[in-house]
């Protein structure tokens, strides 16, 4: 019986093998439980990632509700929920911080609320800086977060996450032009955050009462993205 590396197993599960390769693999699959287990694990992993990698507005909204209810039913209130379960994980793995970015107090508050998950891994400089910046975000100390995000972008100018959150931070600190520059970069990069970036660009214009420009950016957001509902609400508010 042949031995197969992980890439071969993945290509089988993704239906990327030739007919002959597939036939041989399936013959071995029938008599090798460990091979079958690996195929099964890969399929479970792929399904999980497909479902859970996209940002989940429903979970973010529910988390906000639960946070409020926690304050009423448990005391004292927590500043950073949902992180304790990671506390026992060894240093080599991630630390995630749930963060709420709140808009400056204006009538767009409810539309600008979003959740940031910042991660760190392998001691990467950019990720460490993002993690530190996330702490200040969490405390809504945007002026302190900004220098760290500047360093994160300097450290890795391809980090769309750093550019996105620096853009949002700049908006919080009133630097709308700089915010739009970063967010435009994210929008043009084909990053998964591109429609979130378009939405925040629209918000920067909306906060300046430049409604035509805001509308122009909202129209770049198609239906079915994580921010489509909020984009529609902002559009209605502008109209």
């Amino acid at each position: 019986m042949a031995t197969y590396d992980k890439e071969f197993i993945i290509r089988y599960a993704d239906d990327e093998l030739s007919e002959e390769e597939r036939r041989q693999f399936e013959t071995d699959l029938r008599i090798d439980p460990s091979l079958a287990a690996e195929v099964s694990l890969y399929r479970e992993l792929k399904t999980t990632l497909q479902q859970r990698l996209p940002s989940d507005e429903g979970a973010a909204a529910l988390n906000a509700t639960l946070k409020n209810l926690n304050k009423q039913h448990f005391s004292p209130p927590k500043v950073i929920p949902m992180t304790r379960w990671l506390s026992g994980v060894a240093a080599a793995v991630i630390i995630a911080l749930s963060i709420y970015l709140l808009l400056p107090s204006n009538n767009l508050d409810s539309l600008g609320r979003t959740e940031m998950i910042s991660t760190t891994e392998r001691g990467s400089n950019t990720d460490t800086l993002l993690q530190q910046a996330a702490v200040f975000f969490n405390q809504q100390e945007f002026a302190k977060a900004l220098p760290l995000l500047n360093k994160a972008v300097e450290s890795d100018s391809s980090s769309q996450l750093a550019l996105f959150y620096r853009g949002v931070t700049q908006w919080h600190t009133g630097a709308n032009d700089a915010a739009r520059q970063d967010l435009s970069h994210v929008y043009n990069s084909e990053s998964l955050l591109r429609f979130e970036a378009a939405f925040y660009i629209a918000l920067t214009y909306a906060s300046e009462k430049n409604n035509p420009a805001a509308m122009e950016w909202l129209q770049k957001i198609p239906a079915g993205t994580p921010v489509s509902d909020r984009a529609k609400k902002l559009e209605n508010k502008i109209k």
Binding site: L49, R52, L53, T119
Partner: peptide, 27 residues
């Protein structure tokens, strides 16, 4: 628990790998 481990380990990948997988699994 399994889903949590999958996502935690996903975050250990380098940025390029994460981006490729996110896009490849986007449909």
């Amino acid at each position: 628990d399994r889903a949590r481990i999958f996502l935690q380990q996903f975050e250990r990948l380098g940025e390029k790998c994460r981006e490729i997988l996110r896009l490849s699994l986007s449909g």
